[in-house]
Nucleic acid binder design. Sequence first.
DNA 1: CTGAAAGCGCTTACAG
DNA 2: CTGAAAGCGCTTACAG
Lengths: 338, 338
Amino acid sequence: MASIHDVARVAGVSISTVSYALSGKRSIAESTRLRINNAVEQLGYRPNAGARMLAGTRTNIFALTAPFHAETYAPAHMAFVLAVAQAARAHDYDVLLLTQDEATSGLRRVASSRLVDGIIVLDVAAEDDRVGVIRELGTPAVFIGIPRDTEGLVCVDLDFEAAAALAISRLTDAGHRSIGLIGHSPGVYARGSNFPPRFRDGFFSAAAAEGVATAFAMPERDGPSVRAALDELYRTLPGMTALVLHCEEAVQAAVMDILRERGLRVPEDLSVISACASFETDHFEPALDTIPLVAADSCTRAVELAIEQVAGPIAPRVELVPPRFLERGSIAPPAPRR
Amino acid sequence: MASIHDVARVAGVSISTVSYALSGKRSIAESTRLRINNAVEQLGYRPNAGARMLAGTRTNIFALTAPFHAETYAPAHMAFVLAVAQAARAHDYDVLLLTQDEATSGLRRVASSRLVDGIIVLDVAAEDDRVGVIRELGTPAVFIGIPRDTEGLVCVDLDFEAAAALAISRLTDAGHRSIGLIGHSPGVYARGSNFPPRFRDGFFSAAAAEGVATAFAMPERDGPSVRAALDELYRTLPGMTALVLHCEEAVQAAVMDILRERGLRVPEDLSVISACASFETDHFEPALDTIPLVAADSCTRAVELAIEQVAGPIAPRVELVPPRFLERGSIAPPAPRR
DNA sequence: CTGAAAGCGCTTACAG
DNA sequence: CTGAAAGCGCTTACAG
């Protein structure tokens, strides 16, 4: 494997000139740069990663801690993992994957061995063991999600409260006064994941502010459970004219199937919004108005903030990404009572 | 951050003794070892990762190339990614995640910069660009999956052909002579992923060898498409008494729903086997006999083979993991024709 | 059982 | 615009 000495010899310069030419950290005569580039090309030279880490001030690796539990919804989880990896690569960073059985010890290990420059934290729980470890380590870190105590932390996330309020306001604008919410399974809330309660609470408080009647159900992902959830909503809210879905793709699909099966038309008989889903919602029949959870939005910003921290300390903060609304025609004025 | 020199000073020994004490590569007097361990503890010493990479012969990092496409089934993909990460950690290896937009260039980058000791390849296509790059690089690599041309490669995978044959033989043992197969969506086969055709072809050839009548359908994941697939199977195979499912969880769930809805009892009216699924199948009603795709099996073995290769070249090979059968009572003798 | 020293391949002040 | 050299923090022959 060619080293920087080989390149220097072939190009007829010193190794420091090669290093500076490649890093761009000082100006190099055009002719010199050309000879160096030719030598690099000819030898297939790539700087040794270990030597760079040791001599330089950074490793160009971020740790990604993304615990995966029984309740984790794989497609959304995957979308965030990939979005982090892609955002990192855009800044010449690689991503080291840490698993849940090493959640806190893995952070200690990679940070104190200087294997990584910083940490991106996914799947944040309200009470999250990783918070304490990261405070203690002092390593640059960004949370994608919001723990209960954000003291001293840098956090980025979709504004789930605002997303819920946006759903409510779109529906009230159309005249709806009785709105149901289908959330995740009870296990997801019990697990302590940070965003489902944020959406739920945002939903209830926005609805209360508007004086709107609400009902809430948390089905499991099987058909019978979804059917029961819909029954429950109609029972507690007989005049329900609109429905907000904040749940997995399979559950949303099941809801649409069941509505169709019962002859309930969307939006004529029921207006429906899909909120904070990380999957496409335009293949539903009909396509649903959606407030998307765009993994790339939060992850791109998280990587930027991590890189800022590598350069030097920044002020702790909680950055909320404003929700967007994609209109597809699944909202209509409420039908007269049947 | 404490260095090996600090440890040596506190313990009153040379740095080489510290290094050997920690690596266990030569015997150390009990009293010396104790002083060193105390110093390590007291200083919170962790060897610098970059220095180890540079001075040592290995980085203790594997690259994991796991491209993710529109057709990728996230839960299975995730299961394999995690299984690789866990298996790697069990051997003190970390995992660097490579994304699809850098599939081949990323391999070149991490291998020739000596950032990783080897490569684990997931989501292998029959014709896979990564095969050529890996042959050319000569870096230790293990494919989890089997490309068309395995010349010079080390591959591990579940024996999908044997799994299909096992499904057929269990059903023929019970007396079935007309067996349907519900496979993945056509896009999965078109994408060139290696295992779906292996299962399908194994199914057809085992059935042919037994003189069994077959039918095959490839639904999309929506309810209507699954319904149509079942209709198609019953139309082409009116005497169908058994069904093999080799498809996503949502599709398997939909099949069970539709059977129930049509009053078809499992196993009394139809025997069903779930084959090569990486998710649990015991929550179905009834629980299904299953030939599981156990991510940990292939991934553990893949990591072992990668580590062997780091120590020195090994013979190219294709290792097939034999399928297992989990009996749960969803097979019965065929019912008399209705 | 232990130590002194070379060397891994870079980066970056220091010097001109 | 360029070079000689120190140093990053380890591992590992070499020597005793």
